[in-house]
Design a protein around this nucleic acid. Structure first.
Length: 850
RNA sequence: GCCCGCGUGGUGGAAUGGUAGACACAGGGGACUUAAAAUCCCCAGGCAGAAAUGCCGUGCCGGUUCGAGUCCGGCCGCGGGUACCA
């Protein structure tokens, strides 16, 4: 008998699929289509176990849908622009392009042995000029439609390297290479008007029924619709050309608790005051000496500066409030100015206590309402509270009621307007980097900003660049940068910023429907293939990538590049958990982390093998190359074969949950597949006659079909596999005849085929299945074979399981109760008394309360 | 800080509000073998007990319910996102 030898058989079946060209997807109106897509990878150079998990899940869905008669589109490509390629070029002197294409070749070589049912004829990389040229065409059409505009925005500026840093490159407020404290600096940048779509993107979330609730909730909160009041506080004396400060608040009901006005260091008034007051200039400069990330700003120590200016409270003209510049107020939200109500906002309270500002209660709890001391009183807006002499006359009311009453009063009296605002900001797409899609515009002194002509697309990245100095090499590339104006022909300069890589990944799913078209998307193909029926990817993309894609699909529709049906491009979304692994780090002389590979660390002693230096161990974190905690699955594939790895990653954990990676257990998966292989050969050689055990095995076969099918449909791959273990055990133990066993093993092979396609083909061939299993229709369970005549019910006494009874499946409730009360354990517990209550849940449980 | 998740045996995990620990991994015992490997069989949450069985047990505290791992409230811990990592 042949041993299970995946190294040989997996290649053989991959060749058979290739020769039959089974995974090529062609438009075919006569068959229902199914488009399954996994989030495409960044070509870091090595696949990691998270990729394997992601693509195996997608492959299970793709293969299952194929066998249920669908015309399946299952493509693969590369999210190939981005910072790591430039970092590699800076570190080792190569070119981002060479690095990227080499990585793609390497990763493709690592992926192919997995036997994924991918239509490789549709493969592309976002750094292919054929792709990014079409992206430039989309940009021009969107610019023409008014979906894109320019404005100033802040970036992280490294004053030593004289370059813009990504948030990731700012560590503890310092540039990652120079170590210099970063500054916030304003640049003119391109923006998508995504905030114009805030309401629509919010409302459409309700229709995404096949998306996880948590993702919809995250997006809802991110869009952040709020109802509030816009109003102005007049300055007691005009200053720096301002006579008032416009604020926006979602809690106008607490206006009488206002204790000061806070403005952002980037507020126009704050900037104007810098010219007059060197102390303010210094304070603002200090505030700007930090990164731009929201997390950093919010977590930074709260600091303020009293401008000395005063405003008059519009409702209580006798009250004057001081105007402070505060580092925690963001210019991007609202108007960049707030009124602070320390009694009902913890951050305001901390600030007030620090600077000795008043704390004025506006409401207290209904029961034992006490004034605020060191903890702000912030009940839910829907909770009734006792108002203290409220200006609307309310006494006991909820926050919501008080807000509405305040807005109504403000509008009636003319000192404020109720407005709806969104937290969502426009999407800045400019990046001051080389390795991205060039923004196809030219800046002309006479004509201003001029779009490139479409016939000149793609605007190709120049190859002759170097990364031996910091900054964007496009800025110092005269023959690429200096071009004639497309409009007037005068000397002009190309835009040297490139696009955010999120733009690349916001439409690749549409490009896959016609990857070689000479327009961005062939509408006939998109009409057939869109939408993506099942999208699969990491939960870390729950907001940005998915929200940008939803916006971009709408923008593409408005510019005629997608049919209206595709404005929500992903019908169903599954967010897989991340594969995590320990991180090992030491610190350099400046306290900055230095990461180490697992093999460099003595895990037992917690030290570096080479130096004996102690390492910090972070127990669990997302795998990332920069943190050096990526585990390479290639060795395991080489050792056990693709089917074992596929089986193992699916069986190991529920797909939506994060998993700490450990290879322990892969061996067991391999042994099991070997067992299935052996079982198939034994049964193929058997001629045991039909007998009385056949029916039981046949019933088990139908139950397995039913359970596994439901497991796959519901993304419960781990339990589907547990069921397949049980089915295998049942076949092995069964004494049924050879025919019944053959039927069972053929079904086992089919049920396993989405997970372990090579082994399934092998078994199918051994047992004389017709053609390739990949082309065989999915087995169907006979409902009649699934029902049992009797059912065993647990009996609880006072909610604790004490006994059980076996009764006919359809026995009446009263009869079940009667039987249960006869039970010995129940009799003992009752001790002759009548039960207080008996609960019978038919088919499930009996609970006797004594 | 804010938003969203997650927390169950030695380990991965299972469980429409209804028998907590399915199915595995690691482990222990046994069969086969000269031996080993491979394979097959059995055991296995904790405590007490020879056993029957009893008590305890799903991060912690409280609540709803005949019944809570599951629902609600409050904590603790961990993870993701936080708009220039992808």
């Amino acid at each position: 008998m042949t041993r299970y030898a995946p190294a040989e058989t997996e290649k053989k079946w991959q060749k058979a699929w290739e020769e039959a060209d089974v995974f090529r997807a062609e438009r075919d109106e006569s068959r229902p289509k199914y488009y399954v897509l996994e989030m495409f990878p960044y070509p870091s150079g090595r696949i990691h176990i998270g990729h394997v998990r992601n693509y195996t899940m997608g492959d299970v869905v793709a293969r299952y849908k194929r066998s249920t008669g669908h015309n399946v589109l299952h493509p693969m490509g590369w999210d190939a622009f981005g910072m790591p390629a430039e970092n590699a070029a800076m570190a080792s002197g190569g070119h981002p392009k060479d690095w990227t294409y080499q990585n793609i070749a390497d990763m493709r070589d690592q992926m192919k042995p997995l036997g994924l049912s991918i239509d490789w004829t549709r493969e592309f990389a976002t750094c292919d000029p054929e792709y990014y040229g079409q992206q430039q065409a989309l940009f021009l059409d969107m610019l023409d439609k008014g979906l894109i505009y320019r404005k100033n925005a802040v970036v992280n500026w490294d004053p030593v390297d004289m370059t813009v840093l990504a948030n990731e490159q700012v560590i503890d407020g310092k540039g990652w290479r120079s170590g210099a404290p970063v500054e916030r600096r304003e640049l003119t940048q391109w923006f998508f008007r995504i905030s114009d779509f805030a309401e629509e993107l919010l409302e459409a979330l309700d229709g995404l029924e096949k998306w996880p609730e948590k993702v919809r909730l995250m997006q809802k909160n991110w869009i952040g619709k709020s109802r509030g009041l816009e109003m102005a506080f007049p300055l007691t004396e005009p200053a720096a050309g301002f006579d008032r400060i416009e604020i926006y608040t979602t809690r106008p009901d607490t206006l009488m608790g206002a204790s000061f006005i806070g403005i952002s260091p980037d507020h126009p008034l704050a900037k104007a005051l810098e010219a007059e007051n060197p102390e303010i200039a210094e304070f603002n400069a200090e505030c700007r000496r930090m990164g731009t990330s929201e997390a950093d700003l919010e977590k930074a120590e709260k600091k303020g500066f009293d401008t000395g200016l005063r405003v008059r409270h519009p409702l209580f003209p006798e009250r004057e409030l001081p105007v402070w510049i505060a580092n925690f107020i963001l210019m991007d939200y609202g108007t960049g100015a707030i009124f602070a109500c320390p009694a009902h906002d913890q951050r305001d309270l901390d600030f007030a206590r620090k600077y000795g500002l008043p704390v004025i209660d506006t409401f207290v709890a209904l029961e034992d309402g006490k004034p605020v001391e060191n903890e702000a009183f912030v009940p839910p807006k829907s909770e009734k509270v006792k108002w203290l002499d409220h200006f609307t006359g309310l006494d006991v009311a909820t926050g919501e009621e008080a807000i509405e009453a305040t807005i109504e009063k403000a509008e009636r009296e003319g000192w404020g307007r109720g407005v709806t605002r969104y937290r969502l900001r426009d999407w800045g797409l400019s990046r001051q980097r080389y390795w991205g899609c060039p923004i196809p515009v030219v800046h002309c002194e006479a004509c201003g900003t001029v779009p490139e002509r479409k016939e000149n697309l793609p605007v190709r990245l120049p190859d002759d660049v170097s990364f031996d100095q910091p900054g964007n090499p496009l800025d110092r590339h005269p023959t690429w940068r200096d071009v004639p104006c497309p409009k007037c022909g005068a000397p002009a300069k190309r835009e040297t910023d490139t696009m955010d890589t999120f733009v690349d990944s916001s439409w690749y799913y549409a490009r896959f429907t016609s990857p070689h078209a000479d327009v961005p998307v062939d509408l006939a193909e998109a009409e057939y293939w869109m939408n993506v029926d099942q999208y699969i990817g990491g939960i870390e993309h729950a907001i940005l990538h998915l929200l940008y894609s939803r916006f971009f699909a709408r923008a593409m529709h408005l510019t005629g590049h997608l049919p209206g049906k595709a404005i929500e491009p992903f019908d169903a979304l599954f967010t897989q958990g991340m594969v995590t692994h320990e991180i090992y780090l030491t610190r350099d002389e400046n306290g900055r982390p230095v990461y180490h590979l697992p093999e460099e660390v003595d895990r037992e002693k917690g030290v570096l093998k080479a130096t004996g230096e102690p390492v910090e161990i972070i127990p669990s974190a997302k795998m990332s190359k920069s943190k050096k905690n990526v585990v390479d699955p290639v060795d395991i594939i080489a050792r056990y074969g693709a089917d074992t790895v596929r089986w193992f990653v699916l069986s190991d954990s529920p797909p939506e949950r994060d998993v700490e990676w450990t290879a322990a257990g892969a061996e067991g998966a391999f042994r099991h597949l070997g067992r299935v292989h052996r079982l198939a050969h034994e049964i193929a050689a058997s001629d045991a006659p039909a007998n009385e055990h056949d029916e039981a095995l046949e019933r088990e076969r139908h139950r397995a079909i039913d359970d596994v099918t439901r497991g796959i449909e519901g993304f419960a791959f781990n339990t589907a596999i547990a069921r397949l273990y049980a089915f295998t055990n049942a076949i092995a133990k069964s004494q049924a005849g050879a025919e019944a066993k053959k039927r069972a093993v053929l079904t086992l092979a089919q049920l396993m085929s989405p997970m372990t396609p090579h082994l399934a083909e092998e078994i199918w061939a051994v047992l004389g299945g017709e053609g390739l299993i990949v082309n065989a229709p999915w087995p169907e369970a006979d409902a009649k074979m699934l029902v049992e005549d009797t059912v065993t019910l647990p009996i609880q006494i006072n909610g604790k399981r004490r006994s059980q009874i076996t009764v006919a499946r359809d026995l009446a409730r009263e009869e079940v109760e009667k039987h249960a009360l006869q039970d010995e354990a129940v009799q003992r517990a009752l001790d002759g008394k009548a039960p207080k209550k008996v609960i019978v849940v038919p088919g499930r449980i009996v609970n006797v309360v004594v």
